[in-house]
Amino acid sequence: MGVINRLKNDRLAMVCLGFLFLVLLAGVFAPVIAPHSPIEMNVKEKFAGISMTYPLGTDQLGRCILSRLLYGIRITVFLSLLTMAMTILIGTLLGILAGLLRGKVDEVIMRICDVFLSFPSEVMILAIVGMMGPGLFNVVLANIIAKWAWYTRMVRTIVLKYTDKNYVRFAKVSGCSTGHIVKTHIIPGAAGEISVLATLDTGSVILIISALSFLGLGVQAPTAEWGMMLNEAKNVMIMYPYQMLAPGIAILLVVAAFNFLGDSLQDAFNTKRVNKMR
């Protein structure tokens, strides 16, 4: 398909894609690659610099920063992806339901969305985590609750756009089932736009999860997580400022990669604009 070809010609997109792929691989194979256990302490060697045994040095408890970084992928990146997947699933289902059935169903779903959308998502996440207590599961849940309404709305708009197309009208007039219309016309059309949104948003979910851990509301010690690592490094920021570099740069790179990839996807899916540029 044209989209893949266009993406292949986009060097930045390919670099980002490759980088993210490597990050995911590193996360999966963390136990194999990591030189140490992420929670193994070696107090004698605390705040060690870069060396052969500790490629990125050690933290205030003498734990290997590289190992913690690698294990952190499992929490930070994987959890963000899981959160996104769940959010999109809920949003797509409800969005298609609202957009196709219209009428009362649409009305009810949209009003509930309005309620959820009337709170700033960061405040809502903080409130939910605050109420339910810190913890990984609660962070994911809070993220989904804060975001599903937004996705439902977006998907509904996309669905409405497609139901207005003559080819969908034609299928309706001919008596094709709703299932057929959703399967052949709406999902393939909407998938592109949803994937763009999701990619762009994964970056922000990573930021939120890290932020919550940074505030001590997410992952609990001693589990390795990037936001948490930043939090620990913050305590010794004046004495050992480079402690913040590793997790900070890791977050920056991954979030940037997701954003660039989202931008490129947007260009790739937007056939009209590409044709015009030619």
């Binding site: 197309k165 080819y167 001919s174 008596g175």
Partner: peptide, 29 residues
Amino acid sequence: NKGQMSVVFQDYTSSANPRYKISDVIGEL
């Protein structure tokens, strides 16, 4: 009466799904 009422619209540009080949467009029903 599935497929027993048909329509041809004025705006032909949005009448065929751009994702499908012509053979699939015609063979949809």
